[in-house]
Design a protein around this nucleic acid. Structure first.
Lengths: 123, 123
DNA sequence: CCGCATCCAGCATGATACTG
DNA sequence: CAGTATCATGCTGGATGCGG
C-alpha cells in the first residue's frame, strides 16, 4: 500500500501535497537557492539575480516563504527603506534537498532534451 | 554572482527552470514516488493509489514523464488492454532526491503549520 | 481497460500605475 | 527602495462523453 504520508485524505493534510504546493513553484526554488548561495539579500538584489520574475511574483513568493517559516524578513526604518531576507534554520535544512535537485537537473539536462527529441520524432 | 546554471538567459534553457516545469507539479512527484515504491504499475493501479487525481491529469502526467525519459510505457496487445509503467534508469536516479524531499516534508510538517498559524495570528 | 477530445470555469500571473 | 492595487488574460485542470 502507498505510504500513509502520501495518501490522499481530505481530513488530514498530506505532507507531500502540502510541500509541493510550495516548492512545486520554480520561483520558490530559485529564491531559496539564491538566498542559500548568497546569504542575506535585499529585495532588489534578489530581483536582479533571478532576472526574470516580476516584482509582484517576488513579493508573493517571499510572503509565502515567510508564512511557512523558511525565510525571515528584517526591515530597517530608513530612508530609503531597506529590507533584508535570510533563510531560517528550517529553510537551511531544506536547502541541501533543493541543491541536490538542481545538481540532478544540470547533470541530466542533456539526457532529458535528447529524450524529448526522440519522443517528438517518433510520432 | 548567481551560478550560471540558474541564471535566466532566453537563448539557453536553464536546467533549474526546465526541471521545475516538470517536478514543479505535485502529480509528477507523486507518480514518480509511487512508481519508485511499487516498481511496475498499471494505469488504474496508479489511479487508485494516488486517490485524488483525475484520469486526465494522470494521462497527461505520464505522457510528460515518458517524453522526458523518466518513465517507460509498455503496452500489451490484449483484450482488455493492459499498460504498464516503470521508472527508467534516469527516473530511478531522480528518485532519491524526491524521497529526500518527502522525508523533509514529513519531518517539518508540524513546524510549517505552526509557523503558518503564528503568521496569521500576528496580523 | 486505457485513453483522447472537447468544453468551460477559475486561478495564477504579467503589465501597469501608484504609495510610504 | 520596497512594495500595493487593479485589471486583463492565458493556462490548468475538472467534467463529460467517445473510441480502440
Amino acid at each position: 500500500m502507498i505510504e500513509d504520508y502520501k495518501k490522499f485524505d481530505k481530513s488530514i493534510p498530506c505532507p507531500v501535497r502540502t510541500l509541493m504546493d510550495r516548492i512545486g513553484d520554480k520561483w520558490v526554488v530559485l529564491v531559496i537557492s539564491t538566498l542559500g548561495e548568497k546569504g542575506t539579500m535585499r529585495f532588489n538584489q534578489l530581483h536582479e539575480m533571478i532576472g526574470d520574475i516580476s516584482q509582484k511574483m517576488l513579493t508573493v513568493t517571499l510572503k509565502k516563504l515567510q508564512e511557512d517559516g523558511l525565510v525571515s524578513r528584517k526591515m530597517y526604518q530608513e530612508i530609503p527603506p531597506r529590507v533584508e531576507y535570510t533563510l531560517t534554520a528550517m529553510g537551511e535544512s531544506l536547502l541541501p534537498h533543493i541543491t541536490g535537485l538542481e545538481q540532478w537537473a544540470v547533470a541530466n539536462m542533456s539526457g532529458i532534451q535528447q529524450s524529448r527529441q526522440q519522443y517528438l520524432s517518433a510520432k
